[in-house]
Design a protein around this nucleic acid. Sequence first.
DNA 1: GTCTATAATTCGATAGAC
DNA 2: GTCTATCGAATTATAGAC
Lengths: 198, 198
Amino acid sequence: MTGSSSDDSEVPSGATRRSDATRAAILHAARERFAADGYERATIRSIAKDARIDPSMVMRYYGNKEGLFAAAVSVDLRLPDLSAVPRAEMGRALVRHFLRLWEGNGELTAMLRVGATNQAGAERLRDIFREQLLPVVGRVCPDPEQVPARAALCASQVLGMSLTRYVLRFPPAAAMAPEELEAWLGPTLQRYLTAPSP
Amino acid sequence: MTGSSSDDSEVPSGATRRSDATRAAILHAARERFAADGYERATIRSIAKDARIDPSMVMRYYGNKEGLFAAAVSVDLRLPDLSAVPRAEMGRALVRHFLRLWEGNGELTAMLRVGATNQAGAERLRDIFREQLLPVVGRVCPDPEQVPARAALCASQVLGMSLTRYVLRFPPAAAMAPEELEAWLGPTLQRYLTAPSP
DNA sequence: GTCTATAATTCGATAGAC
DNA sequence: GTCTATCGAATTATAGAC
C-alpha cells in the first residue's frame, strides 16, 4: 500500500513535491493581496485567482485563511548587530537597514495593514518586536530596565514612517528621498537608543 | 402638500427632528465599532444593534456604509497655535496636545484603523494632515518649502506612537506614562519643527 | 418613522468526481 | 493533485407594509 496508490497525494520524504510550485505561487499571491488589501478584504478566492489555481487548493494546503496568513507572512527583519557599529552611528545604521527592508518588501506592509485590523496580525507584530528588536536593543543598552521602552520608541518612529509613507501615502512622506529620511530619522533613533533617560 | 402629509419624514426647517436621538445613537455606535473593528468588520448590523435600532434605519439616514463612515468620523484635532508658545517648547506642547487628544478619543483610533485598510479612510487622514497639521507647521517654519516634509515627519512620529500604543498595543509603548512619552517625543518633534534641514 | 422580508452578493469551507 | 459544484453563513442594500 505504500507505493501502489495511483495518486500522489502523500507527501514524499526527500524529493520535491509536484505541488511545490503551486504552493509557492499561492504564498506569493497571498503576500501581495494581504499587503494590498488587508486581512479581511484579501479573499482566498482573489489570492487563488492571482496564483492561477483553484481556490480549493488553498484550503487543501493551508487548512483555512489564518493558516494561509501564518504561512505567507514570516518576517525576518535581519537586524544587524548594532554593537558592531560605532556607537554614534547606530541610529542611522538602524534607519538605513529598515529603509532598505521596506523598499523591496511588501510583506512588511502586509503585516502593518493586517496588524491594524486583525487581532492575530497585531500579535504577530508584537512577536516580531519582542523576538527581533528587543534583543538587538538589549545588546547596546546597558540598563536592562530601559530596553523595552527604548525599543518601543524606536519601533514607534520606524512604524510611523512606514505607515505614513507606504500605507497612508502622505505625499510629503512618500516623496522624501531615502537619504533625506536617514538624515532626519537617524538622530531620532540615536537618541532613543543612547541618550540618557529623561 | 407642505404640511398636510401624515408622516414626518420630511426634514423640518429649524425644529429638532424626532430622529435626532436615533441619528446620534447611530453615530456614537458607529464610531466605537469602526474604532474597535476597522472598516470591514464593523458591520451595519452590529452598529445598529449597538444603537438599539433597526439596521435599515442606518441605510435610510446615511445611504450606505461609506456615507455612515463619513458622517461618523469627523476629526477636529483642535491644534494649538504653536507660534503662541515659546519656540523652544513647541515640540513638547504638540506632543502634550496629541496625547490628551488620543487618550479620550476613540475616533482617532478609528481613523487610524480604517486608514490602514480602507482607501477612503486613508484619504480622510491625508485631508486631516493637509488641512489641519500643515497650516500649523507653516506658521512656525520660515521656509515654506520645508513645511510639508517637517509636518510629515511630525505626523510619522505621532501616528507611529499612536499605532504602537493604542492599536498594536506593544506592551512597553502601552505602559509608558504620558509624562514619559512627552519627555521622549517632545525633543523629537522639536527637532523636526525647528532644527536646520540636514 | 419604524420595521419585516428579502434580494443580490460574496465569502469561507466541504464533498466528491476524475 | 486538481477541479466542479455547492453548502451555509454573513454581508450590503432594496422594496414595501404598517
